[in-house]
Amino acid sequence: MAEDKDLFSDFVDYLNEEGIYDFDFEEFLEENLECDDDDDDDEVEESMKNMDIFLSYIDKTIRDFETNNNLMLNPKRMCDFSKVYETVKLLVKDDKKATVTQKINEPYLTMGCITVISPNIIIKNPQTFVKLINIADTFEVFPLTNGKTQMNFGFNDMVIPLDKTKDK
């Protein structure tokens, strides 16, 4: 609860710093960050505007964290990341059309992502697949516009502040 309050007051400070005085908190919370199909254009535009402001705040918070801390690669998460990357490559090795790529420290230093792109992703070993999902922080699948589907394994905490290395 205390953390929520801090986040809220930080957000209010951010709005004041940026000179944003028309942020509609009530609507923002009521909308639950989503637009309904029956919303009219003005409501959708207002929701999008609120969301943009909130995302800018999140962006600034993360950039501040990256600037104000001495960071180092998190050995445990790097190890997890490599493990998942190598295993994913093995899982889709029979699929000649599949490409597996990895990105670390993009768009933020703390983030990492392993991506599989293929027209038809077949997982024949769900037991192993479940272990990979459990290691990663997020898992998502979506269709692309080029006839392929994309599967992402997202990782957080790829870098950590130096003073926290003992805990991780």
């Binding site: 027209p119 038809n120 992703i121 479940v130 699948v141 692309l144 006839g147 392929k148 589907t149």
Partner: peptide, 10 residues
């Protein structure tokens, strides 16, 4: 864990 295979197709 319960299933035999999974498939994601465009």
């Amino acid at each position: 864990r319960r299933c035999l295979s999974m498939n994601v197709a465009w």
